[in-house]
Amino acid sequence: MDSNLTHLNEKGDMFIVDISEKISTPREALAEGYIDLSVEAFDNVKDGNIKKGDLFAAARFAAINASKKTSELIPLCHLLSLSNIRIDIDLCNQKRAIKITALCKTNAQTGVEMEALTAVSIGLLTIYDMLKAIDPFLTINSIRLLEKKGGKKGILRRETN
């Protein structure tokens, strides 16, 4: 059995990693993702003409809730007490897209990147849900971790292109 696969025992069965001996340290993670919009969807967003309500408020609320429920959605994630969640949503004119950025912070024994990635994913899915009547073929893409701080690896940053 590959010793790098920390969520599998010697029989190959999945299990949640025991972090009880690890020391709690400040942790944070920054993630982002995009949803590409058609011209019609983009114009409706820009004009605030969304029949289901406040698009950005709904996406922000969904993203915050999702980050807090990550361990319920992803089986091998530990339940974390988040000390801060920041969700930024930007309308990107040149890309004709909406970008969601999520920053999650905690003081814990394990990282918080799954919470940030989950926040971005659910925020984007909420936007899709609210715009699908205008265009059912919107594209969600580039969901990725940008930065991770804390733990034994210190600070990890994605190199930008």
Rank of each mutant, 00 (worst) to 15 (best):
D2C: 04
S3L: 15
N4I: 05
N4P: 01
T6I: 15
T6Q: 12
N9T: 12
K11Q: 13
K11G: 00
K11P: 00
G12W: 08
M14L: 13
F15I: 04
F15D: 09
I16P: 00
I16Q: 15
I16L: 15
D18H: 06
D18E: 04
I19G: 06
E21Y: 09
K22I: 08
I23Y: 06
S24W: 01
S24A: 15
S24Q: 14
T25C: 09
T25A: 05
R27C: 06
A29H: 06
L30I: 10
A31H: 01
A31S: 14
G33M: 06
G33Y: 04
G33S: 12
Y34I: 00
Y34C: 02
Y34M: 00
Y34F: 05
I35C: 02
D36H: 05
D36S: 14
L37M: 02
L37Y: 11
L37W: 01
V39S: 14
A41G: 13
F42R: 00
F42T: 01
D43G: 01
D43S: 10
D43P: 07
N44K: 12
V45K: 08
D47G: 13
D47I: 04
D47Y: 03
N49D: 14
N49R: 07
I50L: 01
K51D: 11
K51I: 13
K52L: 03
L55Y: 13
F56P: 03
A57C: 11
A59Y: 04
R60C: 13
R60Q: 14
R60F: 07
A62T: 14
A63T: 05
I64E: 14
N65D: 06
K68P: 09
K68W: 04
K69N: 11
K69P: 01
T70W: 03
S71C: 05
E72H: 09
L73A: 07
L73W: 10
P75T: 07
L76C: 10
L76W: 10
C77D: 05
H78T: 06
H78R: 04
L79V: 08
L79C: 01
L79T: 10
L80S: 01
S81T: 07
L82A: 07
I85Q: 06
R86C: 12
R86S: 11
I87H: 04
D88Y: 01
D88K: 14
I89M: 05
L91K: 12
L91A: 08
C92H: 03
N93V: 12
N93Q: 15
Q94F: 07
Q94E: 14
K95Q: 14
K95H: 12
I98S: 09
I98P: 00
K99L: 13
K99D: 07
K99I: 02
I100W: 08
L103D: 04
L103P: 03
L103M: 09
C104Y: 04
C104D: 00
C104S: 00
K105Y: 03
